[in-house]
Design a protein around this nucleic acid. Structure first.
Lengths: 193, 193
DNA sequence: CGATTCTTTGAAAACAGTCAATCTGTGTGG
DNA sequence: CCACACAGATTGACTGTTTTCAAAGAATCG
């Protein structure tokens, strides 16, 4: 399980062996069964999580009682609740596994030490966060300006690996429409090309 | 104009006089007339901008030909196009002034040097970005789960200073609804309390 | 196979967008 | 100071889209 993380870091960073060892030394690997929680509403998210295998989601139960999916994560993606992590506040969200998954956990105190000790790791993580921010700005723009059909098409284009392994009603939840609407939109979408 | 920036930094950071001087030395102040562009679609956003006075917006012309507002900025806020800034790519967005405004500009190369030279400034900026990211995650959640009325109420609550100085149709644009709909929603909103 | 989860479909109701007209307030130039 | 233009806000009628609810049809899994 660690090998996946190791090759991820080797491909995406310029860390030396010693630095890699330091990172590996604070990582805890964990298996999650399908439907198992990694984080539940009300808990403080005191960790960062790297997905080695499987698929997870970060979602919230809204005032309407429905699930609203903020984010999916598959292999080589990071996932946590940043707001809870940053402020040590109870999370408003849940994280659970959509498939049996392997994840690597780094507790907050250890993770912050890594950032302090390894400048290249820090730069890498901040770069990652910057791109994550850009993606969320683009998603906001899409939410306020695009039709459902366009948003669905872009989702397929941007996340083909996610699209073909999570149920349609979850994509609907991610896009912010009802499953019935997405079903209809998608039929129309399939016909018009 | 610099005094506003100076007191902003003194209140929010733990920088010493020498570090402050270094920052001030690379700042360029600029006045913007109402309706004046700071950045136009297609340009590369090679700067960060601190608003000392006035009000700016970051918006995009969508495929539908309409303006869609991604973000407002008033005094003591930073504004730029992060995606364009980070990747040196042409911006898809425009930034312009909604009122006569005073802004402070720091060019990208100088800004990046500041981050390198002044660790406390770097930490401060990254903290800012983290909170900015959290805010955008919350906005996404609101977009996919809340009613227009709720989104409008939250906008007023979160950004009272913006709400009472920009026209309603721009708030509608920010929320992703037509001005007519927001007008109707707001009337209903005013009546039900 | 039976149970569960997921997807589709239909019909009605709620909601939001569009277009056109009107109303309001502001500021400018004569 | 008035008339006028202009930007912004509202309203009505209409159209189109999305939700909701209920039911039924696939697919998957143990």
């Amino acid at each position: 399980m660690l090998e996946i993380f190791a090759s991820y870091l080797k491909e995406n960073t310029i860390l030396n062996q010693e630095e890699l060892e330091e990172i590996f030394s604070v990582v805890v690997s964990r298996k999650l069964r399908k439907r198992q929680y990694l984080l539940q509403e009300g808990e403080v998210c005191g960790f960062n999580c790297f997905v080695a295998k499987g698929c997870l989601r970060n979602y919230r139960i809204g005032e309407d009682g429905n699930e609203h999916i903020l984010r999916f994560a598959v292999a080589n993606w990071w996932l946590s609740d940043q707001e809870s992590y940053n402020n040590d506040t109870p999370s408003k969200n849940n994280i659970d596994a959509l498939e049996d998954s392997d994840v690597l956990i780094i507790k907050k105190d250890k993770f912050e030490k890594l950032l302090q000790n390894i400048p290249n790791f820090k730069d890498f993580i901040f770069n990652l966060k910057a791109r994550s921010f850009d993606a969320s700005q683009n998603r906001i723009m899409s939410n306020i300006s695009d039709t459902v059909e366009k948003r669905y098409a872009m989702f397929i284009e941007n996340y083909p690996d996610i699209f073909n392994r999570v149920p349609l009603h979850m994509i609907a939840s991610y896009l912010g429409v009802s499953r019935e609407t997405l079903s209809r939109v998608r039929n129309h979408y399939a016909k018009t090309r």
